[in-house]
Design a protein around this nucleic acid. Sequence first.
DNA 1: CGTATAGACTTTTTT
DNA 2: AGTCTATACG
Length: 773
Amino acid sequence: MADLLSYLNPEQRAAVTLPDEPALILAGAGSGKTRVLTTRIAWLIQTGRINPAQVLAVTFTNKAAREMIARLSALLPLNPRGMWIGTFHGLCNRLLRVHCRAAGLPATFQILDIADQLSALKRLLKGLNLDSEKYPPKQLQNFINHAKEEGLRPSKMDVDNPFNRKFVELYEAYEIQCQREGAVDFAELLLRSYELLAREVSLREHYQARFQHILVDEFQDTNRLQYQWLKLLAGSKGAVFAVGDDDQSIYGFRGANVGNMLDFQREFEVRNLIKLEQNYRSHGHILDAANGLIANNAQRLGKNLYTEAGAGEPVRVYRAETDTREANWLGEEIHALIEQGGALDQIALLYRSNAQSRVFEHMLVSQGIPYRVYGGLRFFERQEIKHALAYLRLLDNLDDDTSFLRVVNFPTRGIGARALEQLNDMARLHQCSLAAAVTYVGGKTGANLIAFVQFIEQMRHATQAMSLPEVVEYITQTSGLIPHYETEREGQDRIENLRELVNAAVAFVAENGDELNTPARSIPLAPGATPAAQLPVNESAQISLTAEATDGMTPLSAFLSHASLEAGDNQAQTGQNAVQLMTVHAAKGLEFNAVFITGLEEGLFPHQNSTNDANSLEEERRLMYVAITRAKKRLYLSFAESRMLHGQTRYNVGSRFIDELPTEGLKWLTSKRDSFAQNSMTRSRDENSWGRNWFAKKSTQEVRVAPSALEARQRTAATGFWIGQAVFHTKFGEGTVAALEGNGAEARAQVNFSRHGAKWLALAVAKLQPIDD
DNA sequence: CGTATAGACTTTTTT
DNA sequence: AGTCTATACG
């Protein structure tokens, strides 16, 4: 036990060894938050206060959950799978799977991600013949998700104005549709399990008794419903150990409610409040900047970071005339850092919005600096993956209309819009799923539809005895997806991804194999046989003390849940030997030796939309605080006085956030000019179209300019190719390199082929031959 | 049914 | 500017 605590500072130790009562730990950036959380769990177990099965720990991301499990395994010789450690959604899914009947859900319920939800809503509107101009699906989606996050069902909602009433009606219709299809969206996972616990007294008491200790990570990011869920699960005696940092609350825009921290203190009568203020990450000047900035926020619980690492280097500030110059300066600075022996993956370029990455990418390519951009499409969000998953879902649950529609005609089977319209009518008429309605459609169309359902049935039978990876492999082939992509020009990448999906299944089975039943599926349900809505809701739930993450699920169901709940890693990892590019939001929780915070301009950061409202401005400031505290040794701030944005050159002044930093620790690399405080009103030029065009042309031309000898060498070192180079490909013939990205095994080049157009090629795979001329 | 073109949109995003 | 989406056309 002494070992466990010996690496902790007094505050951390105090937090870890708190009595069995509600506690709030205000953990500043870099103060050892995860260490405290994991050590607390280990300490509770090691001192015999609880056994592992009584632990419930909640995080927001799968990555955080994985990290917690990994660190716990290092501290304790036990299997952490028996513990309930996971994301809110993951744990709710687990709860609902175990108690699906009590929750009124079919065992094979499918999880809708935001894209699935949106298409379900579009389908709903279409079916009701409603104008999607008048009722924008996105708006409806927000409305529904908001309502659910407030714990509101349609019956409990205000219908004072006609517009609202329509939305409530649609919300209700959507619920009925989801229930019929056995579909559950993200917010529903939470609300459903909340209602389950609220309604089923014995179930609730069981879990309350079991989870004597509930630990919550990133508490400042919880929304109303998550807070209520915790409160319900904790009951009157539960010791909730909440760790968070109000200064790092940057997800208010998607429902996170910092107010939960105050509510928690009040409603749980928190007597144990501990602040972790010693920072183990950054040097002094960086922390001074962070502290000085965040002191400008009025709504804070109050906290001041300190370090014993010394003042370190000053914070460097750079003013550029244009965004291109800002980027070029970055390039020079990065080269200097590399020469000083800095690792590439320890350099981060941060920006407020994704659109800003373009200029940097352009520069990094032309300078031959390897880089990696985070954000964008993730693995399980790719269309080919979603198609494959849709087939898999149909094996599990033919009533899943979202999946049915997604693949009924992909690859094409002569089932067009008209056929689906008829099918839709029949389904509505008979109150059943699309798959169950195929027999009601007559003629050739009906025959096609029946053939599709039979095709799925056939695949279901064929895969009966297969292992999960075999099923996935079988489906990608037999469904026609891979053959289809083989004929498509750009299909090679997609086929690669489908193969990767098989690998993902292999990995999934390897990780969860012990808890999974084999074969991949149990007895299938006939289409439309048991409408979930008619299942008895009050059936007393079976309680399992050893419920695992995949308990009660077939490997296929578990894998599908996994795919929905974990879209694939998108956060930066070290060891990639490339400069890391990401938004400030994406950088939360990470740290780098050198950090560049770019685009620090009024209107960009803080963002235009946030400058008029005090609360949003404070959130922007917290965002800046998060950005600053990512840096360990060196921090750069930069801004550009003119910037291409949305096809227009915009002129900006430096961000007010620069003015809010203590001047002692700042080192201006340029003259200080045009700051927000000095003359925010005087600068407001407009650009005529002439200037714009000239500017735009110039910057596009730059890409194609032949590289200088020095630059060419750097590029060759990174990828072996340079932009503008003539190349030969055995299949596509002659072409010119138009762009390069990544490095090593991941390096890709965009080549304009004279006969086959532009293509992205992986350099490790495609055998490109340089042509000397 | 697939392709072409016009039109909308552009802060941040996990589950 | 650039990208994705809806719709019209062959």
